[in-house]
Design a protein around this nucleic acid. Structure first.
Lengths: 133, 133
DNA sequence: TATCTGTTATATTACATGTATAACACATAT
DNA sequence: ATATGTGTTATACATGTAATATAACAGATA
């Protein structure tokens, strides 16, 4: 599992980590039941603090993407991922609204925006990391 | 121009304001050359501080969506909006990647995600809750 | 002259982020 | 049993951001 953090980014480290773990699950690189590194191990590997990793893990646990087993440690949710809840749809729409408006103002067409969304979705669930085009 | 702020939201007030002004421009509710309220006026109307409005205006000015005229005050960019820059495309893709992964993990199909994007784009550039213009 | 504009400066409060130690209960391997 | 590793919790500290509060300035306006 590749994880690349940008310590200069305005996006918090714990949020970058959450994003990349979700992308790992979406891409199939992380499968249900797979173990994740311990908070101390991953923190050391990434050169960050234990509590920052713990915060990410807890957020993912709270959303139902991870489980914590006293025996197996932290694993990817093996009993089915959370579905498309009303809360998620609302958040998705709100974020898309912001992106769509910024795109439209800059002259990006409906088709271009829609195709970009489709393209990103495809790259998300298949390829990872590499550049293309 | 309706502006609704959620003071309880985790999204900063200045960012909500930036978003809604861009949506106003995208929808056509705000047209190039249109004047915006003064920082003091808008701050008072919204019940927030002058500097918060000023921060939003400055961000929008810096991105090229607003102009500040010594005579006309703050107006919507009359000389053509910024286009689809490389920096914007990169930011758009990064945000879409996060959304697409979260959607995919929850079982949202490519088609559903794509159609949601298209739908939101359409609602953005057309009518906004019964405005006349 | 008095008022309004954006702008700048300073100060303060509150909160988020990230780090740093330390300790706890539980499980596991030697 | 002892040592080690696990997630978890508590406390503390430094830094930066967000938001507010006053105050002042230069330029435009009525």
């Amino acid at each position: 599992m590749f994880i690349e953090l940008d310590l200069q980014s305005e996006t918090p480290i714990y949020a970058q980590l959450v994003d990349q773990l979700i992308e790992g699950i979406a891409s199939g690189e992380l499968k249900p039941g797979d173990p994740l590194p311990s908070v101390r191990r991953l923190a050391e590997d990434l050169g960050i603090n234990l509590h920052t990793v713990n915060k990410s893990y807890n957020l993912l646990k709270q959303e139902g993407f991870l489980q914590v087993h006293r025996k197996k440690g932290v694993i990817v949710q093996p009993d089915g991922m959370p579905g498309v809840t009303e809360a998620f749809e609302e958040k998705l729409r709100q974020q898309l609204r912001s992106l769509a408006a910024a795109a439209a103002v800059r002259g990006m067409s409906e088709e271009a925006f829609t195709q970009e969304s489709r393209s990103v979705y495809r790259n998300t669930i298949t390829n990872r990391g590499g550049e293309q085009r």
